[in-house]
Simulated scan of single mutants.
Amino acid sequence: MTQSRYQRGLAQLDRIDGKAGQQVIESLADICPDLGKYTIEFPFGDIYSRPGLDLKSRELATVAALTALGHCQPQLKVHLHAALNVECEVEELKEVILQMAVYAGFPCALNAMFALKEVLDTPLQEEQAAKSELSL
């Protein structure tokens, strides 16, 4: 039996965003649970589950897009966490953000770089960095 879009999306959400993604969905429960359901089904169940790109490439593209939009800081932070969760290197994220200065402008790149700095300064990332150092 094949998984439903929702089940497939939940699995991808957990794999990509872990606790941060689940918190976003839970935060919609009291105002619009359908938006949480649609977020699980379409982006994660349909798009992120496609075979054409690996999760690292998808997250780099997402970080670039959110940086270029320039007004999606909460979503950008979630996807910066996600990018780190799927093995993007900090240097790769910096380069993607820097590249966006050319196409989206310096204000967008500056805001995104500060968002990355904030993400890297959070305890969750410090915990993950410590775990990866221990596993080396």
Rank of each mutant, 00 (worst) to 15 (best):
Y38K: 11
S4P: 08
V119Y: 09
E126Q: 11
Y48S: 02
L98N: 08
H71I: 13
L134D: 11
E127Y: 08
E26T: 06
E59A: 13
I25G: 04
L66V: 11
L110M: 14
A11G: 12
A129E: 01
A130H: 06
P51W: 01
K131R: 10
G21L: 05
Y38D: 07
Q22N: 11
H81S: 12
K56W: 09
Y103V: 13
R5T: 12
I47S: 01
Y6L: 13
V102C: 07
Q23R: 10
V24K: 01
I16N: 01
L124G: 00
L10S: 10
V119R: 04
Y103A: 14
L76V: 10
Q125T: 06
V90S: 03
C32P: 00
Y48W: 14
Q3H: 09
L84C: 05
Q23N: 07
A115M: 12
L60G: 09
P51A: 13
G9H: 03
L66C: 02
L53I: 06
V78Y: 08
H79Q: 13
G70N: 06
A115G: 10
A104M: 09
Q22F: 10
A112M: 05
G52F: 03
A68I: 04
Q12N: 06
F106M: 06
L55T: 13
A109W: 07
S132L: 09
Y48E: 04
G18S: 07
K19Q: 12
L35S: 10
L80W: 15
L136S: 09
T62Q: 08
K77F: 02
Q12T: 02
S135M: 14
P107W: 04
C88R: 00
A129T: 00
D54R: 06
T122Q: 15
L120V: 02
L136K: 08
N111L: 13
M100I: 01
K37F: 01
K77N: 09
K131L: 09
L110V: 11
V96T: 11
L28Y: 10
P74H: 14
K94T: 05
G105D: 06
H79M: 15
E87N: 10
A115S: 15
L136G: 02
L98W: 13
E87Y: 06
L84D: 02
A29T: 03
T122D: 15
F44C: 04
H79T: 09
I16C: 03
K77Y: 07
E91Y: 08
A115P: 06
Q22P: 09
I16R: 01
V78I: 15
R8M: 15
L116A: 14
V102H: 00
L13H: 04
V86Y: 05
E91F: 07
C72E: 11
A109N: 05
R50I: 00
P51Q: 12
V63D: 03
N111K: 13
V96M: 08
M1L: 13
E118W: 04
N85S: 12
D34Q: 13
I47P: 00
C32T: 11
M113L: 15
D121Q: 07
M1Q: 12
G21F: 01
L134T: 11
L69W: 03
Q99G: 04
R58Q: 10
P74N: 12
L60S: 05
D30I: 03
D30H: 05
A61G: 14
L98G: 05
E87L: 06
S27M: 10
D14W: 01
E95D: 13
F114H: 12
I47H: 01
T62K: 03
